[in-house]
Design a protein around this nucleic acid. Structure first.
Lengths: 163, 163
DNA sequence: TTGGAATGTCAACAAGACTGACGTAAAATG
DNA sequence: CATTTTACGTCAGTCTTGTTGACATTCCAA
């Protein structure tokens, strides 16, 4: 028994196993973004717009700094994306009541509609993958993903869960 | 029993579950690329160089077309990266013996050395994640990743495994 | 009232993706 | 043998998304 477990543990950590994980992440991420990308193309948006829409939907009323820390980009980079989303009336701004420096971000109706379109496409693939793999696999999938994040992002990830 | 399973199946496919998967992929991919990115920065290379090095190492002697189909980019895009890698003598070319139109790609010693550095860093994080999550979780992780790929990439992924 | 924080914005730049067009060499085909 | 197709490279131009650095505005808090 002990021997079997040791052997399993060793096997478990071979370079081949790790390489498969690395390549798995690479190929799976391509699939993960493929469907939303096709929709975004039609509207001349990119992944950056998708990410902003996703997290504004997820945390309605978030201020810019909070969004920046979730997305992990510079304010200049985010600002460019936000500007077009606001111009196109997918996102609306409300100046903070307590702290009037802060801008709180919300999706407009059309913003919600596009976000829905994108998340539906992305969820569909994930739902299928989940269904094929089964509940236990999904639990494992999430465990590994979470363990792979930077500690700070892990916290961010968990905060989104409870909010 | 039937009821429990139904309930589980329903829960299992909630929007919340799917959203967690989506955000998990997003945050985990950041962690996945963070360590190699830091190394690449030091040498003024980018992720595109890393990917080329990875797959040339994985399939030594591959021709350009095959590499293109794995990476899923245009030849112009790959060419820019390959040119610098060849100039810097991390990659070497050999003209095909059977078909002299083909260029076969290999890593030089310095190419192997950099690839090793990158994959060690990336593997280290993955190894830790695997260790934390445990063998069953890892099996599930891979199942879901594979199911999330485009069918063509799934084939590519499996081919790499057997070669 | 002044310092610092939150935010926006301008400019410049780079990586890395794309399309389109063209060239060359070599293999395959009629 | 002539023609077509394939494999690859390259030039030019564009786009998205990221970066740094500098500077302005607003406004909370000490």
């Amino acid at each position: 028994m002990q021997n079997d477990r040791s052997r399993e543990s060793l096997l478990f950590l071979t370079d081949e196993q790790l390489r498969q994980g690395i390549e798995g992440m690479f190929f799976a991420y391509r699939g993960f973004t493929a469907d939303p990308d096709r929709i975004l193309d039609k509207y001349n948006y990119g992944r950056a717009h998708h990410r902003a829409l996703h997290f504004i939907n997820r945390v309605p009323g978030t201020n810019v700094n909070n969004l920046l820390s979730i997305l992990g980009v510079t304010k200049q980079s985010l600002n460019r994306v936000l500007r077009t989303l606001i111009e196109h009336e997918l996102v609306s701004l409300r100046i903070g009541t307590k702290d009037r420096r802060e801008r709180h971000l919300y999706l407009t109706e059309s913003g919600k509609s596009l976000e829905k379109q994108l998340s539906t496409a992305q969820s569909h693939r994930m739902r299928e993958a989940y269904r094929q793999a089964g509940p236990d696999a999904v639990a494992g999938f999430k465990q590994v993903l979470e363990a792979m994040m930077d500690p700070k992002l892990q916290v961010t990830y968990k905060k989104l869960r409870v909010s």
